[in-house]
Design a protein around this nucleic acid. Structure first.
Length: 609
RNA sequence: GGGGACGUAGUUCAGUUGGUUAGAACGCUGCCCUGUCACGGCAGAGGCCGCGGGUUCGAGUCCCGUCGUCCCCGCCA
């Protein structure tokens, strides 16, 4: 292999095959860097030593595929290249075969400047030759293998589930596959193997896992692709803590495979606490949490600032941004997307001028240091008096509006000034670079303001807390009430979060048919609707279902973070663009009339006025 | 569905207030070069300024539309 030769190989005969990475022509002396996935070795064609082969080498161009036979030679001390692993040796060419020529590529794998992504994706086969991509794909392989080995070692069976399955609308949109044998009917590609893995528990395979492709027809993001890979697992009889142990086990193995020693167990945090401290259910622990500074102001202060004194006043601290220019301060306001009645007070200096006592108290309470930026988010006075809220509701909708708009601003500011505070830079210390967290006790239901009903926050097979069953009973009687006791039902659901990215989501499932029915009812589904959608599953539940639970983690996201990449596309060999297009194969495409006819499908012309 | 950024040579980019023949670097082609490793030197080729329309004596530059890529919000049970 091109990356394998070392000083100890000197004098040996060797055959190297690979691509011409670079060519340096010195007249009668020609150097070629020969590349394969293992690395690069310098090959020397010397006219003095062998005129014929030197003449032949003149035809070599970038990305030609060649085979070179020669002798491994120790380089002279002054020609050693300490920057490459094979830099102590070179291959003196004795025989050259050009295995294939290459057209002039649109960009070279050896280019230092990165080509625009559109071109990279169109010529993905060339892009993948770049050493970074080779590294990422190899990393992906190692991580997946470590996880497989670890879960097998923990007694899990890898079991496949169907890709062509049943559409169960609700949640993400399905990708549909038309049936030719039964025209007018469709399979759906799985959004996750959720029901199949639960049925595997009912079937007695008490520890299941699968590294499996999932499909969701939703809009894309840097960390969301329409097809993505999950590490899906399920086990019988576990407490949530047991599932977390399993996950911490395989993540430790995966990160070890990537050269990082992470510490377990991961810290845990209630959903409500996450919202209060970070304004988001997937906090990035590398950045400082919020501080509630309402009590730093006097009642008169708050009135003067037109701040609602019943709601929290959140201080967002961004460390070490230094002195901000006037323009930079002005730029903060547009970064703030107010939810509800939330307002931003971005000019801390002005507050300090007007209310020196309050500012001093805030600086002290937030631990503000020189160069730190403090921005306040609070409820406007006009956001009105507090509605009479049921006391079981821990974070009220008005509070949530403040917390979550502050949470978004906190991340946007951290992103914008990443260069200055340097918190996102890898330090090499795994404990600092990888901040894992379990977020637990999610609410079971979320109020859908548009539809005026309750949705499952996780999925409808998630078990509620045993203690909250009573609230479920009474809540079912108040289905269309946003203040229904349903709001206080906690789910036995948990997310694993890394550096502000949701890696995975899981829960203890419902194993009793009567509880499952109640949940469907709470979601506004009639018995008939539930039967029509999930009948097969409800029936299966009635045949001796063991308690069970599990989780699914995004493999792509794990590898992305390990690779230090900004986008999933950097760790997926053949990804899609933001409009879900594969630029290399040019998919999706229209299909022929004949093919459609056979499927009993007619395409409606959509460019009607 | 909404907001924002971008689109100039094969590639990465520059292009001033709207003004002569649209530039640079890398890559490419040819010639020279025996110790380079992001080799060097000389010469050369290479442009539908994304596409369509408009304003103007004159548009890469201003306006409108459109297509494409990226980022964010909504969405992602």
């Amino acid at each position: 292999m091109c990356g394998a030769l070392r000083a100890s190989d000197a004098g040996k005969k060797a055959v190297l095959m690979g691509w011409v990475n670079r060519r340096r022509d010195h007249g009668n002396l020609l150097f070629v860097d020969l590349r394969d996935r293992s690395g690069v070795t310098q090959v020397v064609f010397n006219a003095e030593r062998d005129r014929t082969i030197h003449e032949k080498s003149a035809a070599l161009r970038n990305e030609y595929v060649i085979a070179v036979t020669g002798t491994v030679k120790l380089r002279d001390a002054n020609t050693v290249n300490p920057n490459m692993p094979t830099g102590e040796v070179e291959l003196v060419a004795e025989e050259l075969r050009i295995l294939n020529e290459s057209k002039l590529p649109p960009f070279l794998p050896s280019d230092t400047a990165l080509t625009n992504e559109e071109t990279r994706l169109k010529y993905r086969y060339i892009d993948l030759r770049r050493d970074v991509m080779q590294f990422n794909i190899e990393l992906r392989h190692k991580v997946a293998k470590a996880i497989r080995d670890n879960l097998s070692g923990q007694g899990f069976f890898e079991i496949e589930t169907p890709f062509m399955t049943r559409s169960t609308p609700e949640g993400a949109r399905d990708y549909l596959v038309p049936s030719r044998v039964q025209p007018g009917t469709f399979y759906a590609l799985p959004q996750s193997p959720q029901l199949f893995k639960q049925i595997l528990m009912i079937s007695g395979f008490d520890k299941y896992f699968q590294i499996v492709r999932c499909f969701r027809d939703e809009d894309l993001r840097a960390d969301r692709q329409p097809e993505f890979t999950q590490i899906d697992l399920e086990m019988s009889y576990p407490q949530a803590e047991r599932v977390w142990e399993v996950v911490e086990g395989f993540l430790t193995a995966a990160f070890a495979a990537a050269g990082s020693a992470i510490k377990t167990p991961f810290p845990r945090m209630d959903y409500d606490e996450a919202i209060r401290l970070y304004g988001i259910d997937k906090p990035d622990l590398r950045l400082p949490a919020f501080t509630d500074v309402r009590d730093c102001f006097s009642a008169e202060n708050l009135q003067e600032l037109a701040i609602n004194s019943n709601l929290p006043v959140v201080a967002v601290r961004t460390p070490r941004v230094g002195e901000l220019s006037r323009k930079e301060r002005d730029d903060i306001k547009p970064m703030f997307h107010a939810k509800g009645g939330a307002r931003v007070y971005e000019d801390f200096k002005r507050i300090a001028n007007k209310f020196p006592d309050a500012a001093a108290a805030i600086a002290k309470k937030t631990g503000m240091e020189d160069g730190d930026l403090i921005v306040l988010v609070a409820g406007g006075a006009q956001s009105g008096p507090l509605a009479a809220l049921p006391e079981h509701r821990k974070v009220t909708p008005q509070e949530l509006a403040i917390y979550s708009s502050a949470g978004l601003l906190r991340l946007a500011l951290a992103q914008k000034y990443a260069e200055r505070h340097g918190i996102f830079k890898k330090s090499g210390d795994a404990a600092k670079d990888f901040r894992f967290l379990w977020v637990t006790n999610f609410p079971m239901f979320e109020w859908d303001e548009g539809e005026k009903r309750w949705n499952a926050a996780h999925h409808p097979f998630t078990s509620p807390h045993e203690e909250d069953m009573a609230k479920l009973e009474t809540g079912v009687e108040a289905l269309n009430d946003p203040l229904s006791p349903l709001s206080a039902v906690r789910a036995l659901a948990y997310d694993v979060v890394l550096n502000g990215t949701e890696l995975g989501s899981g829960s203890i499932r419902i194993h009793r048919q009567d509880v499952q029915s109640k949940i469907f009812r709470a979601l506004g589904m009639t018995e008939e609707e539930a039967r029509a959608r999930f009948g097969f599953f409800l029936e299966a539940l009635e045949y001796g279902t063991p308690p069970h639970g599990g989780i699914a983690l995004g493999l792509d996201r794990i590898v992305m973070i390990l690779a230090g990449a900004e986008s999933l596309r950097e760790v997926i060999p053949f990804p899609k663009t933001a409009r879900a297009v594969d630029l290399m194969v040019d998919a999706p495409t229209p299909v022929g009339e004949a093919q459609l006819r056979e499927l009993g499908i007619a395409v409606k012309k959509s460019n009607a006025p």
